[in-house]
Design a protein around this nucleic acid. Structure first.
Length: 832
RNA sequence: GCCGGGGUGGCGAAACUGGCUAGACGCGAGGGACUUAAAAUCCCUUGGGGGUAACCCCAUCCGGGUUCAAUUCCCGGCCCCGGCACCA
């Protein structure tokens, strides 16, 4: 028995029912293979979106916002005749998943597949043009086999190395973190204050690529904000490394207070320092070594040893936060003196924690007169503060109330033969002079550090290394990959500094690949960001299992044509991915140095003025919105909220306007008449709209594209107007990227076979789109007073005559025109 | 502190390289038509002030400036968001 549709039984025509329409087209797309990409198709276009971490909470509206924005762009490119690859996958390894699994008491190997299934269900509803045959899951051995391969590739190229270093240790996550994962001294995940620990860790030599990573930022087509964030992160400074000889307490004994030879003698301890202001060398009145600096031990005199040791011990215990800004300067004198290579003066050597071991050489020359930090330190410890740079209003003797740091207007003073030079010239000349004397070399320093990739956790790809007593560090041969992560019930992290796998003999016992003797596997896993640093290379080659990415396919599909994602990954994922891609490029495995030719950062969706969060209870659940309004309405509404690259404020009430628009679209197509002739004005508006919507989508200006379609809809159905088919039909193609399900249904309703996405983009009739009569804006004394209708290519005189002949405008002309400004096609400004 | 991006109606927001009477489009609000009524739909109004009216004045964070013309350019200031930050 069939239940009559409530509307079907009445006289009323059938209205728009998103639930039915969307279910129908989900099935139809699957049946027809509409979303599967033929990788050999013409004009490849690789549309990439950032793959999600499949959380237990399910799809976040922010995910959907990003995916929809990508999907619209991808669908539009398909309508432009490209073969579009729009893949998606799951970034399912990592601490986040693991912590959640621990909390729930469910093993990640059980939990993750569940989450993935739920994500897949939600994503299916969203109407994305994703080719699911190419999905990747980073936790699948078939995927992480190649993540391990990437590690080995770097190892092979000398870019992966193990060292003992002071690393960021999160006591809550019980693992080390990369610098990129520490925010203001706290773990970016759990906000716990990070400690310093000396551990042996695997690092990637990303610093070797710093210069290239920076240089390419000049030309890649990326959002400015993202490029700037990377520039700041890389932190390039140009300057010089200056060498300071420390006086030997034995041979130079008794010379304190006496000017010593300006010659730099070899054989003694030499402290290199990095400075961006070599011009201020004459004002360097003391040296400072970081407490961890190895030379501290060498130079400290016996009298000062106890004090220095105590200070270093305190510094060692300190966490990173308490060494941050605004802290009072502390430090101790080592008892040693060094020679200023420019002035020949003896200057004391201090150790202080305001100097960081990780940057430059871990030592500085202090110029209190021209550096704020040195000034503060010198004041506190009563060290001399000479002036060596004078501003336009100062002379050599003007006292310094604060450090004078301006390097644009200053000139050198109290600097012997360099007096009078501008800072910029002095930087160069002083460096040259000191270089000739063997006391300097020009260097460039980066803020970027090497990428620490070891994690003392369970839920990641095991690092494919074996340690053999006889052969040393041996990489796992490619044929033995993957090193499978074992399913063990005991996977809790501990404080030992090694990963949980170190507790599982069955895992770590392995024969040495070289000599076959009993050896031990590395038990740390790699950083999740390694999984996502190469996933875009994998998609086109899924499901090949003999190579990570097929050479021919990769050449055809890489680099990525358009990548749209969140800016929170500006210095994490996006930097790592560029680095890994660059390494692969150097290895001849990928066709381009830069993986993402075009990247756009989208904005963030907030709700009712504030960030969505569980604690605020203002999280939007995509499922319930889709239940109530339909996926097409949600998609279109998300894009209508505000500029895609800026984000917007989700307001439940406002969504009704978008639904109304789709209802009206439905009714327009349903009721459209094929008889008669279309209205010329409406047709003109149509062609103007086709043009505008196309331009706006290409520029990701989705909100104005939707506004333009709504505006056209208002013209189409002005009053109780019944549109002509020729007026209504093309609108279906324009709406399609935003609301794909309803578009397909209406496309079919119009009598078309096949998918609207394979039918191309409507052609703009430029002649029709152009207005033949022009409304020229008329200003009098710069104030707009009205418009006159004139022919398109009117001359200034004719236009002026038209104004004078118009009663409403002529009255503003209180005198003869003194001056007339005519902007053809735009306006006429008459000055009287 | 340095570097990016912003500040426009009750709200989300438009306005291409300075130029179509700033505020498109949508939400909300008010009024009307249809209806026994409601919903839905359709129409009108909606930055502020003044005027019976045609109209006039003010208004794009604040203060100056350039220009025939400024939301748009320049100088100075305030505020918000994001990145970096004892990085020498």
């Amino acid at each position: 028995m069939t239940v009559p549709h409530p509307l079907a039984s009445s006289e009323e025509p059938v209205g728009y029912d998103p639930t039915a329409v969307e279910a129908k087209w989900r099935a139809r797309w699957a049946e027809r293979g509409t979303n599967t990409t033929d990788l050999n198709g013409p004009r490849p276009f690789y549309q990439l979106m950032m793959f999600p971490y499949p959380s237990a909470e399910g799809l976040h509206i922010g995910n959907l916002y990003a995916f929809t924005g990508n999907d619209i762009h991808g669908r539009f490119q398909r309508q432009q005749g490209h073969t579009v690859l729009e893949p998606l996958g799951y970034d399912a390894f990592g601490i986040h998943s693991e912590n959640f699994a621990l909390k729930m008491g469910v093993h990640p190997m059980e939990l993750i597949p569940r989450n993935v299934a739920n994500f897949r269900r939600q994503l299916d509803r969203a109407g994305l043009m994703v080719d699911w045959r190419r999905a990747v899951d980073t936790t699948d051995p078939a995927y992480y086999k190649w993540t391990q391969w990437v590690f080995l590739k770097l190892y092979e190229r000398g870019l992966a190395y193990k060292k003992q270093a002071a690393v960021n240790w999160c006591p809550s996550c019980k693992t080390v973190l990369a610098n990129e994962q520490v925010e203001g001294g706290a773990c970016e995940r759990c906000k716990t204050t990070v400690e310093q620990r000396a551990l042996e860790q695997w690092f990637f030599r990303i610093t070797e690529y710093a210069e290239r990573l920076l240089r390419n930022l000049d030309w890649i087509d990326w959002s400015d904000s993202t490029r700037m964030a990377q520039r700041n992160w890389l932190g390039r400074s140009e300057g010089a490394e200056l060498r300071f000889r420390v006086l030997d307490p034995l041979t130079d004994a008794g010379s304190a207070g006496v000017m010593v030879s300006q010659e730099i003698t070899s054989g003694s301890t030499v402290i290199p320092v990095f400075t961006t202001r070599p011009d201020t060398i004459f004002g360097a009145t003391y040296l400072v070594l970081a407490p961890e600096h190895p030379a501290v031990e060498q130079v400290t005199t016996s009298e000062q040893r106890a004090a220095v040791e105590a200070y270093r011990e305190t510094a060692r215990k300190q966490d990173i936060v308490s060494r941050q800004v605004n802290k009072d300067k502390t430090g101790v004198f080592t008892g040693a003196y060094a020679v200023n290579p420019a002035s020949g003066e003896m200057i004391p050597v201090w150790t202080a924690d305001y100097v960081l071991m990780g940057y430059g050489t871990g030592a500085i020359m202090a110029v209190p007169g021209h550096d704020e930090r040195d000034f503060e330190f010198a004041e506190k410890f009563n060290l001399p503060i000479p002036r060596v740079v004078a501003g336009p209003d100062d002379n050599a003797h003007t006292p310094l109330a604060a450090a004078y740091t301006d390097d644009a207007d200053g000139r050198l003073v109290n600097s012997d033969q360099f007096d009078g030079l501008a800072v910029a010239d002095a930087k160069r000349q002083v460096t040259d002079w000191l270089t000739q004397r063997g006391a300097a070399k020009p260097v460039t320093s980066f803020r970027l550090r090497d990428w620490c990739v070891s994690r003392q956790r369970y839920w990641g790809p095991p690092i494919p290394i074996i340690y053999c007593d006889a052969c040393g560090t041996v990489p796992v041969p490619e044929k033995d990959l993957p090193v499978v992560l074992p399913n063990v019930p005991d996977y809790k992290p501990d404080n030992s500094g090694v990963g949980p796998l170190a507790r599982h003999e069955a895992f770590y016992h392995a024969p040495c690949p070289t000599c076959g003797k009993r050896a031990r596997r590395e038990t740390d896993v790699s950083d999740t960001f390694l999984d996502s640093a190469w996933y875009f290379l994998r998609y086109p080659s899924v499901p090949r299992d003999d190579v990570p990415f097929d050479a021919e396919t990769t050449k055809r599909w890489l680099p990525v044509s358009a990548y749209i994602g969140g800016n929170e990954h500006a210095v994490l994922h996006l930097l790592y991915a560029r680095f890994i891609n660059m390494v692969m490029f150097d290895a001849g495995l990928v066709p381009a140095e830069e993986p993402f030719v075009k990247f756009r950062a989208h904005g963030m969706i907030i709700r009712d003025g504030s960030k969505m969060s569980k604690s605020r209870g203002n999280v939007v659940n995509p499922d319930s919105i889709m239940d109530q309004w339909g996926a097409d309405t949600l998609r279109t509404y998300l894009m209508f909220i505000g500029p895609f690259e800026e984000g917007g404020d989700f307001r439940d009430q406002s969504i009704s306007g978008v639904r109304r628009f789709l209802d009206r679209l439905w009714a327009s197509v349903r009721d459209a008449q094929a008889d008669g002739t279309p209205d010329t004005d409406v047709m003109r508006k149509l062609h103007q709209t086709i043009k505008k919507v196309g331009g706006d989508i290409a520029a990701l200006s989705y909100n104005t594209a939707i506004a333009a379609m709504m505006e056209y809809m208002n013209a189409l159905r002005r009053g109780e107007r019944v549109p002509h088919v020729a007026e209504a039909a093309p609108l279906v193609s324009l709406v399609a990227p935003f609301a794909p399900h309803i578009a397909e249904e209406l496309w079919e309703m119009l009598g078309n076979a096949g998918s609207v996405f394979d039918a191309g983009w409507p052609t703009v009739d430029e002649a029709l789109a152009r207005e033949d009569a022009l409304e020229l804006v008329v200003q009098v004394n710069g104030k707009t007073r009205g418009k006159v209708k004139v022919p398109r290519d009117v001359t200034q005189d004719t236009a002026l005559a038209a104004v004078q002949g118009d009663v409403n405008l002529a009255k503003f002309l209180t005198g003869p025109p003194k001056k007339v400004i005519y902007v053809p096609g735009r306006l006429l400004n008459i000055v009287v």
